[in-house]
Design a protein around this nucleic acid. Structure first.
Length: 705
RNA sequence: GGUCGGUUAGCUCAGUUGGCUAGAGCAUUCGGCUUACAUCCGAAAGGUCAUAGGUUCGAGUCCUAUACCGACCACCA
């Protein structure tokens, strides 16, 4: 053995021998073997892995290796996410760099290019998962656009439709004119920005607005019923300048008396609040902004102008007419697209909605009845809070890259037909044979919300034998994911899982915190504090990165990661290596022992006892998902108790203690393995190596020593 | 405005149902190339656990209030 552990020499080759040896594939299930399963949250196949991925992959791999060594039938199912809008956004950026845009391609061409792009990244990403050392079963890997997955998603949508939980609604959506799609409320970033508040003369009343270009879309002027200044005007009419159209003056308590003039122009087509007012007062609405962000249904001179230039024109014209009363600086909150940062336009569109009240009730009761247990109470609170306040879910997205909604509309009777994916030959309502498919695709969270059962069911479809993966592994043991996607993903998996299968999708939920830099700051490209996991693996080894990602902070909390921390863990790996090196130098052949060698020497008895206690408490800690404590115990035992105390004490009586040293090393390596799989396997190979004895990954976890 | 957190050594964090003479890693200081490892060994220094009250034989740990920091959500035309 060399004096230092050379991770570059061992990691690649060890991983290959694991994968080739089928070590990640669940063993044949014998009677009484307990299942342990985790469905890997599929990383987006559009970029390199970042440290956040590395953290959750590490956490899951520790659990997986631990339970595998304990004799469970372990399934860790990997996957890749097509990541709809995100991928299309990244891809379009690439097109733009080549001087092209999505409009240069047909739907089919665009889809095909995106597929090629994504599958390429999927391969890259999978190799990065391998580099981290993840022992997932690659033979069962799933992609969110696999045909069998899509079929299951269609079935669920049809079932929802048949049960009356899907409707086509007209409502205000957050529309990004640049991305060309609507977003859910969760996909919009709000920011405070400087702008102007204009006061405009509407005849008998003056109103305040930040968006004068939408005056053409006004349906009413609204005041607060308690506002003494305006009581007398309610029921009368106001006059929109420039076009001189009359609109009613109404009263509603949503109006803030203090703000502006206390009178609000109601524009149902382009504002969320106004849409509600319009609905409550039975107002009609007029759209004046098209999906391309240009003006429509307005006097000819404004048609085709972009929103901001139309605003300037309107202000100019108002001034000319003397209708602009004032213009004040004003900070207000605007919505911006979370992908491209363009201004979000509220628009009224027809979209597919899923009614969420029944689904969220199912999820809530499953949580309350402890069919699903959150490890961490605060995250249970967050999930429940979301479930209680959920609004109906808009699942339509106007992008190509995704699962196209299986909805067809009859050209004659205009009725919709939903299928499980097959194209209807004629309209079931009127018999007409010309139908047009909705070009929209599903929100990615709608399909990934079905991921736990969709993956397992699809395994059974391609493997219709005597064994059902779904029956055996569902509900899965643990769902392990980040807290920032509780509302997007976790609660939707629970809702859709229970709805589609009648059973919760997983029994336990472990939510992990985010990775921050060494100073606890959020990692971002603009701050320049990005830590590249692949560079760290190259430099210090995968084991060092893995340990650094769980050392010193609870799994559920954010963790600060610095290069110093990773280096410290590299040193730990090297320490273990050198303990083994010392021990292997004391003999020609090391045997694997099934129990501790007998000795009555006090120091020997003490170290064996400590080993037992350490193994016991680490077992308990991993079961409780307290990984930071587990690795700290391990670190302390190996470095302090084993190396510095015991091993040092044996230097004067080398021969007598050799067997004990070998045994403690042997058992320690098993304890190390889930955390640092490469160095432990490398040592196992060097010290205990023998084809007959197998790999460390296949050894049994130390229990009842 | 709503929800959920945090405040413990210079830094980053642990501290499970209250018993701590408050711990770890990194950083610091001093001394060591001792033939496994200088990616090391030995030793040391460093905290009135945000503040104020309360419960208790006993509080970093429970309760109340205050201050500051943070995350997510909503949002005034």
């Amino acid at each position: 053995m060399e004096s230092r552990f050379d991770h570059l020499k061992y990691e690649g080759q060890i991983y290959k021998s694991w994968e080739k040896g089928g070590c990640f594939i669940p063993k044949k299930i014998v009677r009484g073997t307990l299942p342990y399963s985790i469905i890997m949250p599929p990383p987006n196949a559009n970029d390199d892995l970042h440290v956040g991925h590395a953290r959750f992959l590490t956490i899951q791999d520790i659990l997986i290796r631990f339970y595998r060594m304990r004799g469970y039938s372990v399934l860790w199912l990997p996957g890749a996410d097509h990541a709809g809008i995100e991928t299309q956004y990244v891809f379009e950026k690439k097109l733009a760099a080549e001087g092209k845009s999505r409009f240069d391609y047909s739907r089919e061409e665009l889809f095909e290019s995106l597929m090629k792009y994504t599958l390429n990244y999927k391969g890259i990403m999978e190799n990065q998962i391998r580099a981290i050392g993840c022992s997932c079963d690659w033979t069962k890997s799933k992609f969110t656009l696999d045909k069998d997955i899509i079929n299951i998603v269609y079935k669920t949508f049809k079932k929802l439709y048949d049960d009356g939980l899907v409707y086509r609604g007209e409502t205000t959506v957050n529309y990004c004119t640049k991305c060309g799609t609507a977003f859910s409320q969760l996909e919009v970033n709000h920011s405070e920005e400087e702008g102007f508040l204009y006061t405009i003369d509407y005849g008998s009343i003056k109103i305040s607005t930040t968006r004068p270009e939408t005056i053409f879309a006004d349906s009413a002027v609204c005041v607060n019923p308690k506002d003494e200044r305006y009581k007398k005007y309610v029921g009368q009419e106001a006059l929109i300048p420039i076009v001189n159209r009359k609109i009613p003056i109404i009263a509603d308590q949503v109006v803030d008396i203090e703000f502006g003039t206390g009178a609000l122009k109601v524009t149902p087509a382009h504002d969320f609040t106004d849409f509600e007012i319009g609905r409550n007062h039975n107002l009609s609405y007029i759209s004046v902004i098209g999906l391309d962000g240009r003006m429509i249904n307005v006097p000819p001179k404004y048609v085709g102008k972009k929103v901001l230039s139309a605003r300037e024109m309107v202000i100019k014209d108002l001034k000319k007419e003397g209708k602009l009363v004032s213009e004040k600086k004003n900070t207000h909150v605007v919505g911006r697209c979370y992908r491209c940062n363009s201004l979000i336009e509220p628009m009224v569109l027809k979209q597919w909605f899923i009614k969420t009240d029944k689904l969220s009730a199912l999820a809530l009761s499953a949580i309350n009845q402890k069919q699903i247990k959150f490890d961490i109470k605060k995250y249970e609170k967050i999930a429940k809070n979301w479930l209680k306040n959920l609004k109906d879910w808009n699942v339509s997205r106007q992008i190509v890259w995704g699962i196209q909604i299986p909805a067809w509309r009859c050209n004659k009777c205009m009725e919709w037909t939903i299928t499980e994916g097959e194209t209807p030959s004629m309209c079931p309502k009127c018999g007409h044979t010309e139908l047009k498919r909705d070009p929209d695709t599903f929100d990615t969270w709608f399909s990934s919300g079905q991921w736990p059962f969709a993956t397992l069911l699809s395994l059974d479809e391609s493997n219709k034998k005597d064994f059902s993966y779904f029956d055996y592994y569902y509900p899965t043991s643990v769902m392990e994911t980040a807290y920032d996607i509780i509302p997007f993903w976790v609660i939707r998996m629970i809702m859709l899982g229970i709805y589609a299968t009648g059973s919760v999708p997983f029994k336990r939920i472990l939510i992990h915190g985010l990775v921050r830099d060494g100073q606890g700051q959020k990692i971002s490209k603009s701050k320049g504090n990005v830590i590249n996991p692949l560079v760290m693996i190259e430099k210090y080894g995968a084991d060092a990165l893995r340990s650094g990602l769980i050392w010193g902070a609870l799994v559920e909390n954010d963790i600060s990661l610095s290069e110093e921390k990773i280096r410290a863990q590299r040193n730990f790996a090297n320490k273990i290596w050198n303990i083994a090196r010392y021990i292997s130098q004391g003999t020609d052949e090391v045997k694997i022992r099934s129990r501790a060698p007998k000795s009555s020497l006090e120091a020997d008895v003490k170290i064996i006892k400590k080993l037992k206690n350490t193994a016991r408490s680490i077992t308990r800690l991993i079961e409780k998902h307290r990984l930071n404590e587990a690795i700290e115990k391990l670190y302390n035992f190996i470095w302090k108790s084993f190396a510095n105390e015991y091993l040092e004490s044996t230097k004067t009586r080398r021969k007598e203690s050799q067997k004990i040293l070998e045994y403690v090393l042997q058992e320690s390596l098993k304890l190390v393995h889930p955390f640092m799989p490469f160095v432990s396997e490398a040592i196992w190979g060097e010290v205990f190596g023998d084809k007959k004895k197998g790999l460390l990954i296949e050894q049994r976890w130390p229990v009842n020593l």
